[in-house]
Design a protein around this nucleic acid. Structure first.
Ligand code: SF4
Ligand code: SF4
Lengths: 147, 147
DNA sequence: TACCTATTGGACCTTTTTTGTCTTTTTATA
DNA sequence: TATAAAAAGACAAAAAAGGTCCAATAGGTA
């Protein structure tokens, strides 16, 4: 239930790869795809989407490639997944008022609202920079252990 | 992103309808479908699934129909959606150890774990009985207002 | 200028999931 | 026996997921 798509998962891996490169260095699609374990042509589409939303900058021609457009410490996981998968919406009635004619009397509506708010809050609370840091020993990293 | 399916939404509405009936009263598929705004034949499948998981009991023949198998105060929203949509899994790597070969070093993994835990916690915290109560004026209902 | 390199855009495709329908069978009642 | 209602299962259209392929474009380089 409620699974992230491959596209979303791939997108995160790609961003993480870019975040781990030295500032200013350009990476090629094939290089990212190889390292992140993502089909090259599919990743190409994902990166295009990122450049359109402004999270990634691209350069064509010899010596071209991709790089993060902003400081990874300022990019949240929420931004990354929403850039690719759209807004976090556990139920359609959250799209806007009147999507469901029952939303005036429905108590479930507000439960989904809370679910969304929590998800947004968690995803917005973690930056790409934190996630990109290699984890050795994983002690004292400040992240909850849950599975 | 991460949307509940129609099936899941319909399932909740159906359970809520049953929860609002006087204890022991049987409801027909057509009756539930009409009231909940769900295609009759589709709802039929959903109810069958509920009877298999034991949340709903069914009786065939004249005077037959469906009724909740348990006290609505003891059924959580989590049980209802998991009965129909399966376990809450925001990412495949939460299915089990080793689903993703990166899960040993991946910091994102634990973020999805937290997302799942929060979702489970919210959905498990609300009962069908609370949800089924008609809301008039909606004051002091103890539920957060978020959209 | 010609050539190479790399992203861009868009059409296209296959598979899976979603969202149902229809028909037949089983079980229970009158 | 006739009727009522759920159960089971096959079927199918539509949408979404998960990609592929190729021509076009933009930027370097000889
Ligand atoms: S949760 Fe309530 S408001 Fe939202 S779609 Fe379902 S019935 Fe409508
Ligand atoms: S979040 Fe990490 S562990 Fe989970 S699928 Fe993605 S890379 Fe693998």
């Amino acid at each position: 239930m409620m699974e992230l798509t491959r596209k979303g998962e791939y997108a995160i891996r790609a961003i993480l790869y870019l975040a781990r490169q030295p500032t200013g260095r350009l990476s090629l699609v094939g290089e990212i795809a190889g390292s992140a374990g993502v089909p090259r042509t599919f990743l190409s589409k994902i990166l295009q989407q990122f450049t359109r939303t402004g999270l990634v900058s691209s350069f064509r021609g010899t010596g071209g490639g991709f790089t993060l457009a902003r400081d990874p410490a300022g990019i949240t996981l929420l931004e990354v997944v929403e850039a690719i998968e759209g807004p976090v919406l556990p139920n359609r009635c959250l799209v806007g008022e009147g999507t469901c004619e029952r939303d005036g009397t429905c108590r479930v509506h507000e439960v989904w609202g809370r679910v969304r708010d929590e998800m947004v809050s968690i995803l917005a609370g973690v930056t790409i920079e934190e996630l990109a840091r290699a984890r050795e020993g994983s002690a004292g990293d400040g992240l909850a252990k849950s599975s």
